[in-house]
Design a protein around this nucleic acid. Structure first.
Lengths: 198, 198
DNA sequence: CGCGACGTTGATTTGCCTCAACGATTGTGG
DNA sequence: CCACAATCGTTGAGGCAAATCAACGTCGCG
């Protein structure tokens, strides 16, 4: 591999624009490679949220701990996805979520300020990021619709269909907390589905 | 008012950038003013979604009709908000939602293609729109968290606190379908809250 | 091995839904 | 100006999906 193939190509993969070596060097200087182990907490609730993370390998999730002490998973992220507490990151408030590493991970982190610097120095990145934002927007809209209009069983089936690559990494109690049900209920749903297949 | 004060200033209100007269004329040419009456359906499910709408006056909502025939409200929009079926608008698929006018409204509509044209001709608008997107993103994230972690009663109380300006326009059955409960349940919740205040 | 993490199963409770009937309010035509 | 219907919200009775609480397998690992 030539040295010109930078991790930046992985992050900006799918961007139709091409970047000069200088632009790549600049962008590269703003990202920091970090690694985490299964079980590590990348960000704690109430901390300042200054970074977002691009996932190169591994798996992470964000979750809320509600007043009653229960966990509610907001997002999973695997290879090629971004993750952060986006409420905190975008509105510059302290975190409400935890970011947890659930499978040994290699990430590229970038701060909010550096994202802005990149937009200013290499404006064409802004379009790419806007389109990414739009796609995320679409999937969150779909999630809201699913929560409003589907039963727990339907949501589980759709989850396994939509994210087979995530299912293999995560525990059932992660999925339950993503679907908004208890582990016991998910267990019964899984049993029901297994029986239907016989 | 000088003629240089265009409706564009209303739409791009809060944008710190200033625009030349020519830029404003160009952007203006891409927007079309439209009016709707209470009860009008601005967009039907299964239609192509080519436009988004900026609300100048009035009130609208988007909703899904699920297989079981029930309505689920995704979004309300009043003065200063944008509305569309953003799943369809961003992913260029047919609408899954209806857009309904629930209070006589004046809107400025703009097509997906014209939005792109504006970005190309007046690139500085892209940043403003991206920031708007980020703010929407935050509120949808909060909605997902609320649905996952709060009771119907908590969600109702938070809704009335967060959107007092919307509450005055909409019927209780609109709110119920936004919160993901039935009108009967909302009625009982309201009764309970009223009793607590005595 | 023995312990802890994870998943399952059963019994019971509960929050919300469903179905049905009944006010209250508003708008409309005779 | 009243009669009437339509729309919207409320109330009650009964049912159901999922939560809660508790106990018990099972697997992997120090």
């Amino acid at each position: 591999m030539p040295t010109s193939t930078s991790f930046i190509h992985e992050i900006y993969h799918g961007d139709s624009l091409s970047y000069t070596k200088e632009e790549i060097r600049f962008i590269e200087s703003k990202y920091e490679k970090v690694t985490f182990c299964k079980g590590d907490i990348v960000l704690h609730a109430n901390e300042k949220v200054d970074h977002q993370y691009f996932v190169s390998t591994g798996c992470l999730r964000t979750y809320l701990i509600s007043k009653s002490g229960k966990e509610h998973t907001v997002q999973f992220a695997i290879k090629g996805w971004w993750i952060s507490d986006y409420i905190g990151f975008f509105s510059e408030t302290n975190a409400t979520l935890f970011i947890e590493c659930i499978e040994d991970a290699t990430l590229y982190k970038v701060s909010r300020d550096d994202v802005e610097d990149i937009f200013n120095k290499v404006p064409k990145t802004e379009r790419f990021i806007r389109k990414k934002l739009q796609r995320s927007f679409v999937s969150f809209q779909k999630r809201i619709l699913a929560n409003l209009s589907q039963t727990a069983k339907e949501r589980y089936i759709n989850f396994t269909n939509d994210y087979p690559n995530i299912e293999q990494f995560v525990k059932n109690y992660h999925i339950a907390s993503y679907l908004g049900i208890t582990t016991e209920s998910l267990s019964r749903i899984r049993k029901e589905i297994a029986q239907e297949r016989s």
